[in-house]
Design a protein around this nucleic acid. Structure first.
Lengths: 234, 234
DNA sequence: TGCATAATTTTTGTCGACAAATAATATGCA
DNA sequence: TGCATATTATTTGTCGACAAAAATTATGCA
């Protein structure tokens, strides 16, 4: 029960309510503020945001469309679970999208894209230097998302961003273990990836992205094998 | 203005209205009964289905989430356009998903999956024999979708099904030219693909799927180059 | 007491109505 | 007549209320 996210009722612009609820709920789900299985109560949200149930429901329909919440008809709706049993399907998809988007970035990027990518890389390096695990997760995702954008294929960027979101949820479960030496290696690999993209070397981009992605996957799998404790209450 | 799709108002079950509107609009969009750019009028739909605007709007939000309609705030909503300029991104994604899903099917399928796949292949062959172009499109999509299901990766099947839907819209524009000899070749290639899946030969599956997909892409691109006339009024 | 059925409460899905935002039309003035 | 402003009309977004479905609690009977 945090205090009010609500704006004085009629101070709000006419279609902004839905987006506000959608964005905030999405963040709370991905940050595990609302852990998997949390019940979503429409009237509670309506009171919290000081609006009627209609815009709340629209936001929920959108979230359900992205698979972030599950709605059983005439029954409660709740934050969707993380499918640990089929985690390998997530890894398969993630590695492939890392490869494909990086390859396409090498092929289709424009010069101005590199500026954006380098900006995210700088933020990622700063997060590593500061040993801020949550910032690492966020800036790493932004870095790779920017690369995907440079590849200019909306179908791939769409799936990739979904995967990065899901990865954000998974990593939140284990982020304390990101304090070892590996992140510095990621920084270096990012630099190499930027270089081959700038050189438009598609094969090298594919190769480096594959290695990089598999390293990340191994990192996560190691955490699972170690049976890492969740540091967020479920 | 076709006649009523409506059921006597209170004869309808409680959450079925949304699904009905969603399914029907989706079909009409993919079949180009509602061509790109068609305006979507909420009150008109509400009258047509004899229900209030609320469930109509929910169906529209879902469709917008899948990119099938575009909604500009406080303004009209319309069927989304087909992006002919970036068609190559569609082809790239389609070919890759053909490859990946077929490869995974060879790796992870269960015996009962093959029954389903063979069933769709039989229907496809029948459509080719009958020279029914629309049925070819539908059964071909069902065949490959079943292969994707056998690969058991929800991330890939999700994207793939979206691509097949979009392809359905594109092919509708040109389906008259499907009456030449190529389809029989597709039937044969399908048989080969089934064989390598059953043999769990992932490399061969990858190779055959690539060839098959690129053939389909070339077929479509030839139609574009030929400047084929649209046989549906825009 | 134990269990099946009935009454109550809670929550979701739908409705009709109103208000804001935009489009369309009309009015006034040079 | 031509154009800017004002008026009207249309359409979307939001609201409060009601009804159906399910969950919960209460009641009756052995």
């Amino acid at each position: 029960m945090t205090d009010n996210d609500a704006i004085s009722t009629s101070e709000r612009k006419r279609g902004s309510g839905v987006k506000m609820v959608y964005d905030l709920l999405r963040d709370e789900i991905l940050d595990l503020v609302l852990p998997p299985g949390s019940p979503i109560d429409e009237v509670q949200l309506a009171e919290r945001f000081k609006m009627s149930r209609t815009p709340i429901r629209e936001a929920l329909v959108r979230l359900a469309g992205e698979g972030l919440i599950d709605t059983l008809p005439n029954r409660s709706t709740m934050v969707s679970n993380i499918d640990f049993l089929n985690m390998h399907t997530f890894f398969d998809a993630l590695v492939l999208m890392y490869r494909v988007t990086t390859r396409l970035a090498a092929q289709y990027h424009r010069i101005e894209d590199l500026q954006v990518i380098r900006g995210h890389q700088a933020e990622f390096a700063a997060a590593v230097a500061a040993q801020d695990a949550l910032a690492m997760i966020a800036t790493n995702a932004a870095f790779h998302s920017a690369i995907a954008d440079a590849g200019r294929n909306a179908y791939f960027t769409g799936l990739f961003n979904r995967l990065l979101d899901e990865g954000r949820r998974i990593l939140r479960l284990y982020y304390q273990s990101y304090e070892d030496r590996l992140p510095q290696r990621f920084v270096d690999e990012h630099e190499d990836i930027i270089a081959v993209i700038a050189a438009r070397d598609t094969e090298a981009a594919d190769r480096l992205a594959t290695i990089h992605a598999e390293q990340i996957v191994q990192q996560i799998q190691k955490l699972f094998a170690r049976g890492g404790k969740l540091n967020i209450a479920l």
